[in-house]
Nucleic acid binder design. Structure first.
Lengths: 117, 117
DNA sequence: TTGACATATGCCGATATCGACATATGATGG
DNA sequence: CCATCATATGTCGATATCGGCATATGTCAA
């Protein structure tokens, strides 16, 4: 009995969580301090329920925290989960930084162009 | 007339392209050199058509190149597109590296724990 | 040309996803 | 308790996504 898995769940995976533009924008906004949902929704130009859902995803992967503050619920950034992504991409640094690989990429650009003539 | 946009197209966006585990594995495999599709498929334990489709996505966002080599079609890494991701996540470095923010996160962990009692 | 091998594409089924909307839950103050 | 404000959740419609499978395209070699 094989249950289908159409795509990796967006929750439970930081890579998927930040694949969404609006969620990335939320994280950027939270860099300057904690905010309630409705304020974030306003700044993103989206409705409150949508913002709540994005925040839920971000919370489930641990990129965001919330604390109650009176009637409000303040969300704050927890950037620690972004570190693995930073390090994973950093593993490819030589493919854009190293002069040999830059030259290599250049040569392949030329080959590509020649092939497409 | 508003056309629906259920989710950002995986093509045309590097963040979405690397949101998929198998595509990330392909990129890692290509770090050690160019490979044909069928070899990648074998190493990933998936069928060739699946690997071809993932490679198509990676090619469309510019993370991968291909060149014809006889009967084969060799795919190679072009890591340059990962740089923006590395830099974007790097913008959050202080949220995991800075001692103040580490302390801050620690305190919030405590508050969280207390709140959930 | 024909056959063999390598790769790409098309279709299907199951499911995830996102925005919009309505509504439920929750907390506060009177 | 009740009204109010803030937030969360549920449902729906449209679409994207992924693996599996069959099949088309492409490339070589004899």
């Amino acid at each position: 009995m094989m249950v289908f898995m159409a795509r990796a769940a967006t929750t439970s995976d930081v890579f998927n969580a930040i694949a969404e533009r609006q969620r990335r924008e939320i994280l950027v906004l939270l860099q300057s301090g904690e905010r309630p949902v409705s304020e974030l929704a306003g700044e993103l130009g989206m409705a409150q329920p949508g913002a709540s859902k994005h925040l839920r995803v971000l919370r489930e992967v641990g990129l965001v925290r919330d604390r109650k503050a009176g009637k409000l619920r303040l969300y704050s950034l927890d950037g620690r989960g972004l570190r693995p992504v930073h390090e994973w991409t950093g593993g490819f640094e030589r493919f854009w930084n190293d002069s040999f690989d830059r030259l290599n990429a250049y040569v392949q650009d030329l080959e590509q162009a020649r092939q497409e003539e």
